[in-house]
Design a protein around this nucleic acid. Structure first.
Lengths: 217, 217
DNA sequence: CAGGAGTTTTAGGCATGGCTAAATATGGCA
DNA sequence: TGCCATATTTAGCCATGCCTAAAACTCCTG
């Protein structure tokens, strides 16, 4: 396989599965801060708990994850860098699919999840250039730069936000149905709303992150 | 996996390896007409003869290849349709990489070979639209339409062409070194040359296909 | 502080797609 | 026509990543 593929930020080659696990560990902790267990990983990845345990062990052996027995899984600094590389690929690809190929924002997740393990570093950097070095993907998730740095907006989940005016910062891309509901309601990143009154279900509003206007002063 | 992926022209799912074998059987017979043996396949794919035999057997069982014992491998009509689907993906991707991402024509083959098994049907059709439905890829290889039809230009290999003026129709993308040599010599598809006098080695000139001017009348 | 529900890990398999080494078939040449 | 070099296939193995079932551990509750 050609150099630069399946890696992202250097280091030995890593299977697509391994990359997905790292990205998922990162993703489960990016906006929320709950303990990431092998069970949570398994549920998120649609895999049996036993499979998650086995893969986590391999990634621990490679120095990419920490995992006290029966405890929470966390990224080492190397693992975090790798995860951010995958996240960068994923979010640039999503941006490309929406901006250049006319995908709906509810259609991009699966396609990007497959492609993120296949495109080379050259492809990613050329895409970044073509897109004008975007800061966030269509869902409002920030895109790490090539060095693996990213800045998370301060935001709270809509279902936990104080009533009052707020700006939509991000809508989780985990569920296409939720994305369509938000789209129908006009809740795209940048839109303003009243956090006390919106047409989303409780579960859906947990996928929307907003910045209450008060915090802007 | 999402519908439309790894298939191309419908039918049951096929592994990336299987797709590559079909494409290779097609490719070995597209411009030349020599018998495709399991050994030739193995050599082309960089795999042991035993592995090629095993994979061919699986594709025969799926009705995609014919293979008399110890004989030549050939595509069934179903297999040919599948192969053309993969070829279409590959050539559209190569065109995209050169036209939109600024790749050199000697850099696209590996990237396209990986991506062709990963992009969805939707991706391919959107790419086709973005590119304006190109008829040929950067090497001059014709791109099958979505229904699997393609028209091969009448052409002869440069090392077997009669001396005299000729137009370059196609340069095989199998070898990056050869592509760079042709590029340096200005032998891009559409260029004219004298078939008796060119700066290529014998092996390199076997990768160039030309249309002698006489045949144009 | 003991029991049990629930979670996590271990044990043992399956499928895919590669490999090497050994057996078998082919085909050209003496 | 027989034989040997070469090509092809078979046999047996390895690694990856998933599975289910069973064992081991945690931790909450009574």
């Amino acid at each position: 396989m050609s150099p630069g593929v399946a890696g992202g930020t250097g280091g030995a080659e890593l299977s697509a599965s391994g990359q997905t696990y790292l990205k998922t560990v990162y993703g489960l902790g990016e906006w929320d801060t709950e303990a990431v267990t092998t069970g949570a990983l398994a549920a998120k990845l649609g895999v049996s708990p036993a499979s998650a345990t086995a893969m986590v062990r391999k990634l621990v052996e490679r120095g990419l994850l920490d995992h006290p027995p029966y405890g929470a899984v966390s990224l080492t600094s190397t693992g975090r860098a790798r995860a951010l590389g995958v996240v960068r690929r994923h979010r640039l690809l999503e941006t490309f699919l929406v901006r250049e190929l006319g995908y709906g924002w509810d259609q991009v997740h699966e396609e990007a999840a497959r492609l993120e393990h296949t495109v080379s570093d050259l492809f990613v950097e050329r895409l970044d250039r073509l897109l004008g070095h975007p800061a966030a993907d269509p869902h409002g998730d920030p895109i790490p730069d090539a060095a693996g740095h990213l800045r998370l907006p301060a935001a709270v989940r809509l279902d936990r936000a104080p009533a009052g005016p707020a700006v939509v910062v991000r809508v989780s891309d985990a569920n296409a149905e939720t994305l369509r509901a938000c789209s129908a309601a006009g809740l795209l990143p940048g839109a303003t709303l009243d956090a006390g009154a919106h047409p989303l279900t409780a579960a859906q509003s947990a996928a929307v992150w907003v910045e209450p206007q008060e915090t802007l002063r």
